[in-house]
Design a protein around this nucleic acid. Structure first.
Length: 867
RNA sequence: GCCCGCUUGGCGGAAUCGGUAGACGCAAGGGACUUAAAAUCCCUCGGUCGUAAGGCUGUGCCGGUUCGAGUCCGGCAGCGGGCACCA
């Protein structure tokens, strides 16, 4: 008996696949139209240095789909690339003095080797890295097209500014109001930045997401909530008193509300600290200026905001109630009103909005309930606003009294419209996408700023605008801005001295179109439509849920923009999406509370000890693998020890792919045992197998027939499970088949057709596990006497005649409780089933001498005698 | 706070349409082979009563619909995720 040695076999098969260009994707092969395309893509990795188990899981799933679809006759595109721009490369430069490009390309080389060792069926000829000018030059080109179409624009916007590092921080880089690296207090700064007009597609992005049937419901919902459509009324109130006309808005305050039914409960209006009126007032009033600044500083830090008290500043201005000339309400500047949403101004109805209520209580404003719950005995408001917006009738509201909420809304909208003081409005939560980053390691934004001509696009023949290589990271701020000469250029329009834009793109821009570039990765244009139209959209996209909103939404926007600029046929990039769960592991701490790596501990009965010192180890929670908690297992070490197939098998066994999986030592051991078991089954069978391609035997014995049935049942089940992404179930079905084969081999006598049945069973099992364990499958396939590679084989087909059961077990119940079973031919008539059931001793016993009141029969399944 | 999801043996999980709850794997226990170990193979494995046959009970908790509920409906609890002054 020989043992399977993955260390030797895996590189050998990888080389053979490569030599045979087995995974090279060609559009429309042989000029024929009958092979349907299938584009499977996993989210490309950031080249951090080494692959982690999350990558192994993600890429194994994608590879299963790719190999399966290939075997089903599809023309499969399965590429790989690198999301290669981003901060860690600059951090490495600052900390270790290594150039971002060197660091990045070294990491790519390492990780490419690791991915290759996994035996993924990838078309490496299409590999790309976003930090390559060959890639980002096309991005710049498309940006200029977007600019021309008004899909990209510049505006001033406030950012989190770290005054020590002289850099803009993302929200998640601000911790307790301080920069994550410098620890300096973060300020809000107004900067002119580039934006993509994603809001232009807000409605389309929202309605279309619901049509993406092959996306998880959860992701569609998250996107819907993120876009956040609301229907309401925009209305204008007259500001009373002298001088009102001089204010922005020409004497009117425009507010947006979705609760116009509560207009009679209005006790104040509030405007944002950035509202034009607030800004106008601030210029003549230091107290207001100070208050506005305070609001902005709080707004910068998400955490502080959470507990922040409602604060207001009474402007002294008042608005007249639109339906009651005798009523008016004060205008406050309030810290909880956002300039970026609606009109930046609201009317406050404390009785029916919690924020308004908190504010009103603090400043002693009137709280008048105007909606009472249906059929209720009146309403009083203490500390909780009545915010139900579907159940209730209007009170204290003049002509609205007695109406339900919907009717009251309609009535108010009608009257405001008639008065020319309001109109229905749809508002989105979604904001335009700010893409400027004050960093070096990103795609340069291809524009030039000229004192005379303004913003001038870099002419096409000067693209790509490449990053200068000679940069220093010895001082804070953006190295591109510090570079002695890179930014100084002649204005393309007038020829005078001008400067380049030194901001680079958010790396989400790079990942918003890489899937399209994969279709024609070497084209001179960003996209070659003929080929791209053939491959796009991605049929199956696979990645982590953490990208459920931003990456996927940005890609959906970008594809729409590309379509508008003529680079794409379809608006939606990803027809099918699967979000896989994370890989978790137990955590370990020593006596001092320091985290320990899994390989530093030994498990003992009831606990664990340190491998070297023998000191007790505390076993902590099972958490997502992370370097900081040291609960990581290195894929390279696992592959070196067990081989790629075992690792691949483990990450799809037992746990449904969308859920978090726990990595365990015993789990990988179990997978390893199965790897060897498959080889052994094949190896031990060789002596008793007939040659390949023999016809089914004319006579077949009962054991061999049962084997054939088990084989075809497994084929049918595994096929369906892979189609539905139930890899863990497919694995279970393959285990069952291997158990059947093992039993078949171990039985003493071989009946008619045994050799044929055994070969069929083994070959089917090998074909079925091929997508999961491709190297082992090739090795077995060759051992079974095949000279061609398994990657070129077709997927096995289940013979319906062999998956049909010829005996069914019918459960016999009395009053819904299981009392026995009948084994009958499928399709047995109901009266036959009934009489057989009633004849059973166990049934008679539990009927207790009573007569059957009713007999419920589900053919081939169950019979229930009710007494 | 709002929205969404989940809850099944010691563990991961299976049960596609309301019809045998616990497939398959892991762990555990017993046995075979072996000088021994490893590897491998066989058996047992929700709880409980019983020598057994066979009962009873059991899918987070309470209630409902149904001949029949892990599955459907209502309520509650716990865990997880998303959003979070979005008017």
């Amino acid at each position: 008996m020989t043992r399977y040695n993955p260390k030797e076999a895996e590189p050998r098969w990888q080389a053979r696949w490569e030599d045979g260009k087995a995974f090279e994707a060609r559009p429309d092969p042989d000029g024929k139209k009958y092979r349907e395309k299938y584009y499977v893509l996993e989210m490309f990795p950031y080249p951090s240095g080494r692959i982690h188990m999350g990558h192994v899981r993600n890429y194994t799933m994608g590879d299963i789909v790719a190999r399966y679809k290939r075997a089903r006759g599809f023309n499969v595109l399965h590429p790989m690339g690198w999301d290669a721009f981003g901060m860690p490369a600059e951090n490495a430069a600052r900390e270790r003095g290594i150039h971002p490009a060197i660091w990045t390309y070294e990491n790519i080389a390492t990780m490419r080797g690791q991915l290759r060792a996994m035996g993924l069926s990838i078309d490496w000829a299409r590999e790309l890295a976003t930090c390559d000018p060959e890639y980002y030059g096309h991005e710049q080109r498309m940006f200029l097209d977007f600019l021309e179409r008004g899909l990209a624009y510049r505006k001033e916007s406030s950012v989190n500014w770290d005054p020590v590092d002289e850099t803009v921080l993302a929200n998640e880089q601000v911790i307790d109001g301080r920069g994550w690296r410098s620890g300096a207090l973060v300020e809000q700064r107004q900067l002119t930045q580039w934006f993509f007009k994603i809001t232009a597609y807000a409605d389309d992005l929202l309605t279309s997401v619901n049509a993406l049937e092959r996306w998880p419901e959860k992701v569609r919902l998250m996107q819907s909530n993120w876009i956040g459509r609301s229907e309401g009324l925009r209305m204008r109130f007259a500001i009373t008193g002298a001088g009102a006309k001089q204010l922005p808005g020409n004497g009117e305050l425009e507010v947006y509300t979705t609760r116009h039914d509560t207009i009679f409960g209005m006790s104040f209006c509030a405007i944002s600290a950035d509202h034009p009126i607030a800004l106008a007032l601030a210029s003549g009033n230091p107290a207001i200026a100070e208050f506005n600044k305070q609001c902005r500083d709080i707004a910068g830090t998400a955490e502080a905001l959470e507990r922040a008290e409602k604060l207001g500043f009474d402007t002294g201005l008042r608005v007249r109630h639109p339906f009651d000339a005798n009523r008016d309400a004060p205008i406050y500047i309030a810290n909880f009103v956002l300039m970026g949403y609606g009109t930046g101004a609201i009317f406050g109805c404390p009785a029916h909005d919690q924020r308004d209520l908190d504010f009103a209580r603090k400043y002693g404003l009137t709280v008048l309930p105007v909606v009472a719950p249906e059929g209720g005995a009146g309403i009083t408001i203490e500390n909780d606003a009545y915010t139900d917006n579907s159940d209730g009738r209007l009170i204290n509201s003049d002509f609205l009294n007695g109406m339900d909420i919907a009717a009251a809304k309609a009535e108010v909208a009608k009257r405001m419209q008639a008065a020319g003081a309001g109109e229905p409005a749809v508002t989105f939560r979604l904001r335009d996408w700010g893409v400027s980053r004050q960093r070096y390691w990103g795609c340069p934004i291809p524009v030039i700023h000229c004192a005379a001509c303004g913003v001038v696009p870099v002419p096409e023949d000067q693209l790509p605008v490449t990053l200068p290589r000679d940069v220093t990271f010895d001082k804070p701020g953006n190295p591109l801005a510090h570079h002695p000469d890179w930014k100084h250029v002649a204005c393309p329009a007038c020829g005078k001295d001008a400067v380049r834009e030194t901001d680079t793109f958010d790396t989400f821009v790079d990942s918003s179109w890489y899937f399209a570039r994969f279709c024609t990765p070497h084209a001179a244009a960003p996209i070659e439509r003929n080929e791209a139209d053939y491959w796009m959209p991605v049929d199956q996209y696979i990645g982590g849920v953490e990208h459920a909103i931003l990456h996927l939404l940005y890609s959906r926007f970008f594809t729409r923009a590309m379509k508008e600029a003529g680079y794409a046929r379809d608006a939606e990039p990803f027809a099918g999406l699967f979000t896989q769960g994370m890989v978790t592991h137990e955590t370990y701490k020593d006596e001092t509370g320091a985290w320990l790596f899994p390989e530093q501990i030994i498990k003992r009965e009831g606990g664990a000890v340190h491998r070297d010192t023998g000191a007790p180890v505390q076993i902590g929670k099972i958490e997502s693998m992370s370097k900081s908690k040291r609960n990581v297992v290195d894929p390279e070490a696992i592959i070196a020890h067990y081989g790629a197939d075992t690792a691949r098998w483990f990450v799809v066994s037992d746990t449904p792919p969308e859920r978090d999986i726990e990595w365990t030592e015993s789990g990988i051991e179990g997978a390893w045992r199965f790897t060897q078991r498959v080889w052994r089954l094949v190896d031990e069978s060789l002596a008793r197998l007939p040659a390949g391609h023999s016809a089914p035997p004319i006579a077949i014995g009962p054991a061999s027939l049962a084997m054939r049935k088990a084989t075809h049942t497994a084929i049918a089940a595994v096929t369906e499970d892979i189609e539905r992404f139930h890899f863990n179930r497919a694995v279970a079905r393959i285990y069952e088949l291997s158990n059947s084969i093992n039993g078949f081999i171990n039985q003493t006598k071989a009946d008619d057709g045994a050799g044929f049945a055994l070969r069929e069973a083994l070959e089917s099992m090998i074909l079925l596990l091929g997508p999961m364990m491709p190297h082992l499958a090739e090795e077995c396939w060759a051992a079974l006497g095949h000279s061609t590679m398994l990657v070129h084989e077709n997927w096995p087909l289940a013979d319906a005649a062999l998956t049909r059961q010829d005996q069914v077990t019918i459960i016999v119940q009395v009053n819904g409780k299981r009392r026995g079973e009948l084994t009958l031919a499928p399709g047995t008539a109901n009266n036959e089933i009934e009489s057989r059931a009633l004849a059973m001793e166990a049934v008679a016993r539990h009927m207790d001498g009573k007569t059957a009141r009713k007999v419920v029969i589900v053919p081939d399944r169950i019979v229930n005698v009710v007494v």
